[in-house]
Amino acid sequence: MAKKVPLQITLNGEERAEFVESGSTLLTALRDRFDDTSPKGGCNQGTCGACTVIIDGELRLACLTLAEMCDGASVQTTSGMAKGGVLHPLQRAFMEGFAAQCGFCTPGMIMAAKALLDRVPNPSRDEVIEALAGNICRCTGYEPIINAVLEAARANSHNAA
């Protein structure tokens, strides 16, 4: 049995602490210990993007991140996106634009898109494509996803204006 170590993180704005197995990944820790199954394990080797989360403002693959190294960090996942039952513009755009079919890639896609919009509020189409390059979708053919991100950016700037 691997040693258990304490892990304290701010998960979607909430202070949380759990014991996790030493050497486990943040993906396993979030899913099995923190009951946040929004990051998905599609490959567990850093190639699909299904496990994408935001750690201290940076886009990260949870399957390649050691849980212990996140102690004290702020972690954002798709399950924390909707505030008070109101969907984030990205969530709304994905929903209305048919950007999710089986939905397995969706939480990772939304995280990658959020990291982009946090940095570049009005991205070009090419910037969106670049930002989603690490996330594989086997269902949609990407077009609806790219369009949804651009739509969310438009909706955002509308609200800001």
């Binding site: 899913r31 099995d32 199954t37 929004s38 998905k40 394990g41 996942t77 798709t78 399950s79 996106m81 909707a82 969907l87 990205l90 969530q91 709304r92 994905f94 929903m95 209305e96 048919f98 999710a100 939905g103 397995f104 969706t106 939480p107 939304i110």
Partner: peptide, 23 residues
Amino acid sequence: KGLQRSDAPGHVTAKTKYFADRT
């Protein structure tokens, strides 16, 4: 006419449960 997929709200909020989302 475009219709809302019934599973889309679950997908975008990550509430959709896949078989492995349990331990």
